[in-house]
Design a protein around this nucleic acid. Sequence first.
DNA 1: TTGACATATTCCTATGTAGGAATATATAGT
DNA 2: ACTATATATTCCTACATAGGAATATGTCAA
Lengths: 113, 113
Amino acid sequence: MARAATTSDAFNAVAEPRRREILELLAFGERSVGDLVLKLGLEQPSVSKHLGVLRRVGLVRARRHGRRILYKANPEGIRPLHAWTKTFERLWEHQLLRVKERAEEKPRQVERE
Amino acid sequence: MARAATTSDAFNAVAEPRRREILELLAFGERSVGDLVLKLGLEQPSVSKHLGVLRRVGLVRARRHGRRILYKANPEGIRPLHAWTKTFERLWEHQLLRVKERAEEKPRQVERE
DNA sequence: TTGACATATTCCTATGTAGGAATATATAGT
DNA sequence: ACTATATATTCCTACATAGGAATATGTCAA
């Protein structure tokens, strides 16, 4: 089998760098598709397709305004990612502490293997 | 072109659910490959390949111990993901506040379009 | 060195998908 | 109704890759 579908969840959706760029732009507020096209330098269909993926996994919301369609980030969709990564927070804090400890103590003990 | 390579960065690496499972298991401490195989119910080559991806992007560290090879999570590798998602934290906090406000005030104003 | 155990790697194939080109849909203005 | 504008969708193709099977590599013990 191939990789899981991007439409399946937010993790896959943000694995694509362009989609992260889009989310970063939409974090400042609403933007039309054409606006994003200008900012990103991508083809309009590409942007629309990326927005489609982001919308399907709930990372952005869209509303029509005249001829334009305005997109905005739905930060709630990013929360699960944040929560998952946060479970490792205590680990890297612990890791940093160990590094600091080693730097302060004398190098008596040699790492085995 | 196709999707970006999983070996390219941590975002792609954790997009795969199995790899997230592996990281969650390795968060508790070192584990051998065979141990992970038992816990995950996957084929040994699959686990080895996932570990290879995680190792290449710096999400896990490995050391040989006799015949076994022990893997552990390298939480530092997850920090960039956490940092990226955290930039949206103020947004969902703001969003939650707005939801709360709306729930408390009388529904006088109608959302346009 | 031979054999058993533990892990990695190679080869193969099916599949999801990003991007490009062309086209379809929708809206506003005249 | 017609036209221009804005966005979405469809079709196509190249390609990365997940998993399976088979094999290779590495390590210990006798």
